[in-house]
């Protein structure tokens, strides 16, 4: 018999059916965004959502923030209203960069679903590659990971919190105006 592997614990696994529903949900979310259906995407979020993307800290491991004014900064630090505002911008038809359309292809993988203290809330970890491509040769691919809190509601699954970690200190792209 194989030796029992010790796996870094986040929490207890959800049951298989829940894990399957969450995988389908995240795939559908990615497709909704790829298809620029922002209203449908917003409906997959809880209105209390906290959506963050911190800047990676390239400091020595021994260093801890001291009295300096340098501290963690967020690339995204959004409420539902701010996400709505970003979506509304995309829908104005006046974002010249996206006409002709910018194509986004999101691949979501390594999805792990764990239970939390709240039976209706799952701690979901995933990894993503987001390819954006426009015009002749303007292609950039971003790879990172996400920590989500996803809640089971009467209205289906909703994202309550998302923290995106994009391990690029210097962003080599014109912008990150895309939802991760």
């Amino acid at each position: 018999m194989a030796k029992k592997q010790k796996i870094a614990a986040v929490g207890k696994d959800t049951n298989m059916e829940t894990a399957y529903r969450i995988e389908r949900f995240l795939a559908a979310e990615a497709r909704t965004l790829d298809e620029e259906r922002y209203d449908d995407w917003l409906a997959m979020l809880d209105e209390s959502i906290v959506y963050k993307m911190p800047i990676p800290m390239n400091t020595y491991r021994r260093n801890r923030p001291g009295k300096s004014s340098i501290r963690e900064t967020m690339i995204y630090d959004e409420s539902f209203e701010k996400l709505k505002q970003r979506a509304a911008r995309e829908d104005t038809g006046m974002v010249w960069l996206n006409d002709p359309a910018t194509h986004h292809i999101r691949t979501i993988t390594n999805i792990e679903s764990f239970c939390t203290d709240d039976a209706s809330v799952y701690d979901v970890r995933s990894k993503f590659t987001l390819l954006r491509s426009r015009r002749d040769k303007d292609h950039v691919s971003h790879t990172g990971l996400r920590k989500d809190l996803i809640q089971d509601t009467n209205d289906g699954l909703k994202i309550v919190a998302r923290t995106v970690f994009l391990p690029e200190r210097v962003i080599v792209d014109k912008n990150l105006n895309m939802f991760f």
């Binding site: 993307m53 800047i55 900064t73 967020m74 690339i75 995204y76 630090d77 959004e78 701010k82 505002q85 970003r86 911008r89 974002v95 010249w96 960069l97 962003i171 014109k174 912008n175 990150l176 105006n177």
Partner: peptide, 13 residues
């Protein structure tokens, strides 16, 4: 961050 950060909605243009 929201206007002129790496994902700023104005910076990107």
């Amino acid at each position: 961050g929201q206007t002129f950060g790496s994902a700023g909605i104005l910076e990107g243009d």
